[in-house]
Design a protein around this nucleic acid. Structure first.
Length: 524
RNA sequence: GGCAAGGUAGCUCAGUGGUUAGAGCGGGGGCUUCAUAAGCCCUAGGUCGGGAGUUCGAUCCUCCCCCCUGCCA
């Protein structure tokens, strides 16, 4: 089976990462880790989009080079990923020379097969804003406002990509491939946009006088490439596409990885970039319908129903949140509270509940009380017991039933539902302690076999949970297994999960609170 | 104006063409002591936005309307 190739959007290095960036990368990381635990090889690519006008301007303002500027911002992203345990295999930075060479090779390829052409267009250009203005910017009397400074009509030559030529193909492709976009309801928007596009071509260049911070067109030094080829091509350039033509060494074998199993993106860049430009670019480069990637479109985190934005001043810094709720607390919350594809509300109250009630009180406390009793009554040594009854059977049954349900939810990106499935085990295990009351059994030596059985069931159940939750909270799960005293064998997969992983005489370790309860100041 | 997504218990949200529509939180009552003042049990009578239709039967299907959000114009 080919490796599972998963990518995320590459983030624009003009500002520090916010919670939406964090969500997307954690989501992809969770899926990457999940796929690995199904036994599949995985290649997880993420990165940063570093070129463009905004970066050039910001760097100028600070009096440093664009490269210095983007290096600084990039570090904030990589630091965050490291902190949140986003564990990628490939890093796509668009100023990487290897990437630039592939972009140029791809553009050359398109030019050679007649997909690119030059044209002159007239437009109203604002010196101050360094951009062309459209009718949207016009005031009611037809003039442009003072904020634009002097606006002059100029004629400019640029390179264009024959996008319009492929619109019909794309429409047919989308209609015949309902799995192209997940969730499916987004497809209607795409078909709509195609309807309204009017078959327009795509401008892919900017004159170097206006934009120097970009990848030069290989066949026309007067221009640099603008936006889409630069950014979208990362999905193939860092997967090894055209690495021979570009003279790139040590790249993945493209034929093994492609097509991507999941481009994880936000709903804001579905149209037109990922659902229209990208498949058409691939199609024009000669990719077949079977070689088209799949899109996983996630929603946004809102703040009290409002969009997060700089102007509203409600942008949430994931570093701050992980300071308070711990990195794994944040990972858990982000996966727990969003139904993939839809929007969700970011709520500090919910975060606290997720941490203190679910992680600390539910899972962490279950581990703690189970190990504590095993230490207290049996010095941490488990014994396989002949005792059995309906309560014990029911717990084993729940564990066994949960695994396939969990796998199904996770495979279809319903992470929050996968978590819910696992929590049914956590809940039942806590209930199991109350029903079996091992602390009472311990007082009666005639109940020894029964007590052994209870302690064994708790440890084995927790071990299962620690495997199932590994994609979501990998570090906490590793700690759980440390305390249980069980090392996950190399190459262990979900298929290897079966009752009886812990052997007779297994030695458990001392309990240490997994998620120390957080004392948070009361919100206003 | 067009398109899309929502409108379900006080709050945040699951969910399904069919016996009494669910969870968490909050609130109220109880049990327990192994545990991170954690856990477990009981407790919500909510016209599943409104109306019409299809159906033996709809919260879930169709149509119309209203409200909110997003995108486009």
């Amino acid at each position: 089976m080919k490796p599972y190739y998963i990518t995320t959007a590459i983030d624009y290095t003009n500002a520090a990462p916010h919670i939406g960036h964090a969500y997307e990368k954690v989501l992809a990381d969770v899926m990457a880790r999940f796929q690995r635990l199904t036994g599949r090889e995985v290649y997880f690519l993420t990165g940063v989009d570093q070129h463009g006008q905004k970066v050039q301007k910001s760097a100028e303002k600070m009096g440093i080079s664009p490269q210095e500027f983007v290096d600084g911002v990039t570090e904030k992203f990589t630091a965050l990923w490291s902190r949140l345990g986003v564990d990628y295999d490939g890093w796509a930075a668009t100023t990487d020379e290897k990437h630039k060479r592939v972009v140029q090779a791809a553009l050359q390829k398109l030019k050679d097969c007649g997909q690119l052409y030059t044209a002159k267009t007239k437009g109203f250009y604002s010196e101050r804003a360094e951009q062309f203005l459209t009718d949207k910017e016009r005031l009611e009397d037809g003039t442009f406002g003072e904020e634009w400074g002097t606006v002059t009509e100029i004629e400019e030559e640029n390179w264009y990509f024959k996008l319009g030529e492929h619109v019909e193909w794309l429409r047919a492709f989308i209609q015949s491939h309902p799995d192209f976009i997940t969730p499916a309801f987004r497809t209607a928007d795409v078909l709509n946009a195609l309807e309204n596009s009017g078959g327009q071509d795509l401008c892919i260049s900017r004159p170097v006088e206006r934009l120097s911070w970009g990848i030069p067109l290989p066949f026309d030094e007067r221009f640099v490439n603008y936006v889409w080829f630069d950014a979208l091509v990362n999905y193939i350039s860092f997967a090894g596409y055209l690495s021979e033509e570009a003279g790139n060494a040590d790249m993945p074998v493209f034929a093994r990885l492609w097509p991507a199993d999941a481009h994880v993106i936000g709903k804001d860049i579905l149209i037109p970039a990922h659902a229209i430009y990208w498949p058409i670019m691939l199609h024009a480069l000669g990719f077949s319908d079977e070689e088209m990637p799949k899109l996983i479109v996630h929603g946004w985190w809102n703040i009290r129903g409002k969009k997060m934005s700089k102007s509203l001043g409600n942008v949430v810094d994931p570093q701050n949140v992980s300071d308070i709720f711990t990195p794994e607390g944040l990972r858990f919350y982000l996966m727990r509270d969003m139904a993939t594809g839809y929007d969700a509300d970011l709520s500090e109250e919910r975060m606290e509940i997720a941490y203190n009630k679910e992680l600390a009180g539910g899972l962490g406390n279950l581990l703690n009380r189970s190990l504590s009793m095993a230490q207290k009554y049996r010095s941490g040594v488990l014994a396989v017991s002949a005792y059995d009854d309906e309560i014990h059977q029911a717990l084993r049954q729940t564990v066994a039933d949960t695994v396939p349900r969990y796998l199904e939810k996770m495979q279809t990106w319903q992470i929050h539902q996968g978590i819910e499935e696992v929590w049914k085990i956590v809940f039942q295990a806590n209930q199991f302690v109350d029903l079996t009351a091992p602390f009472k059994l311990a007082k009666d030596s005639e109940q020894a076999a029964r007590l052994d059985s209870v302690l064994y069931h708790l440890a084995e159940t927790l071990l299962h949970v620690s495997v199932l939750l590994t994609p979501i909270i990998p570090q906490a799960c590793a700690k759980m297994r440390e305390q249980i005293g069980w090392v996950m064998p190399e190459g262990f997969t979900f298929a290897d999960l079966h009752w009886g992983l812990l052997k007779d005489g297994h030695q458990l370790n001392q309990p240490v609170p997994l998620f120390p309860r957080l004392e948070l100041p009361v919100a206003e």
